[in-house]
């Protein structure tokens, strides 16, 4: 373990903005895409259920 504290962890040795800016945007893009795909899938399954 290389981090003395959580503050040190979030600071990323002064590169916090760059490191977290990369990871956060990546996570947001992937979560956003998956959420919209799953919403469409759920709606379709609901329609299937109504038909059956």
């Amino acid at each position: 373990m290389q981090w003395g504290s959580w503050a040190e962890f979030w600071a990323m040795g002064g590169y916090g903005l760059y490191v977290w800016g990369s990871f956060a945007v990546t996570l947001m893009c992937m979560a956003g895409e998956m959420a919209s795909l799953i919403t469409a899938e759920r709606a379709a399954r609901q329609r299937e259920g109504e038909q059956a």
């Binding site: 290389q2 962890f9 990323m12 040795g13 002064g14 590169y15 490191v19 990369s22 990546t26």
Partner: peptide
């Protein structure tokens, strides 16, 4: 990526961007 991999001796912590940059 954040708790096992060591700090890079040249780039410090900024190198950790590699963990999303290269796979993407």
């Amino acid at each position: 990526a954040f708790f096992v991999a060591p700090t890079d001796f040249q780039q410090g912590e900024s190198y950790r961007i590699i963990f999303v940059h290269v796979p993407a």
